[in-house]
Design a protein around this nucleic acid. Structure first.
Lengths: 341, 341
DNA sequence: GTGAAAGCGCTAACAA
DNA sequence: TTGTTAGCGCTTTCAC
């Protein structure tokens, strides 16, 4: 019960009868040390259960901490989970540890998190920027050598490295797939807010595909949803239109869940669907869900690689890397337009 | 380009013409400060873009760092993502930040992560323990006041708080559901390794349900898989048995994906299924997937609440909290046994 | 091969 | 209301 304090370097030194510096030397394999001393020190360390205080070390050494700060909108979203896992894989070999937080797409929460990360002197800062967040304040940190990377979306007010999916091209390919099966009225169910980069890009890709096909862009066919439930309702509303869509394009993984669930609920097998971002069990649906798959592992890896290069002194211009998406045709896009139209 | 050093408290103090302590006071709203001084300090802080070094502060204050270390097997698994998000939600109000890492269920990686977290003097340590990991080394830290909580599985070699799902009861309820529809040969597809706590508990629940129903426990009906792909193959093997199961129980979310995908691939609608842990789109499958849903949010919340109570001085005995599961009947468990048997 | 002293950036304790 | 001194746990620097 005695809240005994943790042993320090000095405790170990005292135990062995050497100076603190000697212990430090042994532990960091810095400078020389006699075999005998080394042995004694190591024994004492084990005996006392000494664990060096990394914060104290960092303070003295002055360099950045061996952590990497990552802000995502939602830890529970599998897409961001996959990105985070990929980042971790890539930076682990460099001894970096992940400091993570979720912003809920709230600029204030994002700012609070990045401020905390900066106060901890993270080695690298990665952010999935929230709509409305400004990142001008990060400029000074970047200037002092902190790599800042935006992930999934570009940030505002700061020119720095950025890794995104090929949202526009992907959406265009997905919608073109639907057009190819004769659909002329294709609904778009996007996420919110409408100013969200991914939403805008994917909508733009949708519109490009329509234009390519000479189809009109009917605003009535464009819906939005915050979450899976809303996406289901938006789907129902679209299908209840006087002149309803015969196909739907889902703007992200969460929306896709809602769209697919609603079609299943209402037994509408006649509506073609393509979703942006892959979802679990897509291939087990009937029909199996055709998707524009993102590559979260590659996004994470690229972001990490870019940041590490900066850490190693890469001073080249900020670049935006676009990670390709891939149309995975599984069937749901192939419902032909019925004669009713 | 000049890798100028970051401003320190002393820089701010010099800029204003006061002592470092005064700046410290203003920033921490410690002690008094004249309106004028406060104003000047704040202005200088903004002008220099000063951000206090949290590590230095922590070192001096001596308490634990305002971080919480969390080790999960896989950041990309939505179950652990949901747990992590829930923990973060709960501890954010206390100003704690998440330090996260994935162990890949490897005891060495787990140990490396916990050691790093301990070296950072985390306020709380939460671990989803890997099979084969020993946690005796954590005892001394717990003794010094560090709350240690095992999540999803009990740890070995250390009696401390633990939060788990009602694995056994849940599995039993799920299998009983299948028994209720006349199934006498029910396959179990579990995860690996077989020594995994959740695997063993769920298998035990499965066996209890069989025993309750007076059904034999046929070892041939028990399969294992590491990942989704393997689970699909295991499913195929089970169904290819001379006397195959008419129903399957999937032992976790990943296995469920494989089982369901394989049944879809082979067009086997006659096989009943119940899965442990909910999966996205379960309700959109045909038939919709009946699951024993876990409650990752509640698991995370409970783990966090328990740990915070310890931080606040709760010295009561270590307790294991079991978070209830819930059978969500959606249809896939209701395929009746065909006459062929 | 080892140690003493100084200092990293910050705050506790005591003055003034 | 403000400043001074000392020291958190560690490493750097320089001496021996």
């Amino acid at each position: 019960m005695a809240a005994n304090r943790r042993p320090t370097l000095a405790d170990v030194a005292r135990e062995v009868g050497v100076s603190a510096k000697t212990v430090s030397r042994v532990l960091n394999e810095d400078g020389p040390a006699s075999a005998r001393t080394r042995e004694q020190v190591l024994a004492a360390v084990a005996r006392l259960g000494f664990q060096p205080n990394l914060m104290a070390r960092n303070i003295r050494v002055g360099g950045p901490d061996t952590t990497i700060g990552l802000v995502v909108p939602d830890l529970g979203n599998p897409f961001f989970g996959a990105v985070a896992g990929s980042i971790e894989d890539r930076v682990r070999e460099r001894g970096l540890t992940l400091l993570m937080g979720s912003s809920a797409d709230d600029p204030d929460r994002e700012r609070a998190l990045t401020d905390k990360f900066l106060a901890r002197r993270v080695s690298i800062l990665m952010v999935v920027p929230s709509v409305g967040a400004d990142h001008a304040h990060l400029r000074q940190h970047r200037a002092v050598g902190l790599p800042v990377v935006f992930v999934d979306r570009p940030g505002a007010g700061l020119a720095t490295d950025c890794v995104v999916s090929s949202n526009r091209e992907g959406a265009r390919a997905g919608v073109t797939h639907l057009v190819g099966y004769g659909h002329r009225r294709i609904g778009f169910v996007g996420d919110l807010p409408t100013r969200l980069y991914t939403r805008r890009e994917r909508l733009a890709g949708y519109r490009e595909a329509l234009r390519d096909a000479g189809l009109p862009d009917d605003r009535l066919l464009i819906a939005s949803a915050h979450d899976q439930h809303d996406a289901g309702e938006a789907t129902a509303r679209l299908l209840a239109l006087p002149d309803p869509p015969t196909a739907l394009f889902a703007g992200n993984n969460i929306v896709a869940l809602g769209v697919v669930a609603e079609l299943a609920r209402s037994g509408r097998k006649d509506v073609a669907v393509v979703a942006f971002d892959d979802v679990a069990l897509a291939e087990a649906l009937e029909p199996a869900l055709t998707v524009v798959a993102q590559n979260p592992e590659e996004i994470g890896r690229t972001a990490a690689t870019t940041a590490l290069a900066r850490l190693d002194g890469d001073r080249s211009r900020a670049r935006t890397v676009t990670v390709p998406t891939r149309l995975i045709v599984r069937g749901s896009g192939e419902q032909r337009v019925s004669a009713s139209a």
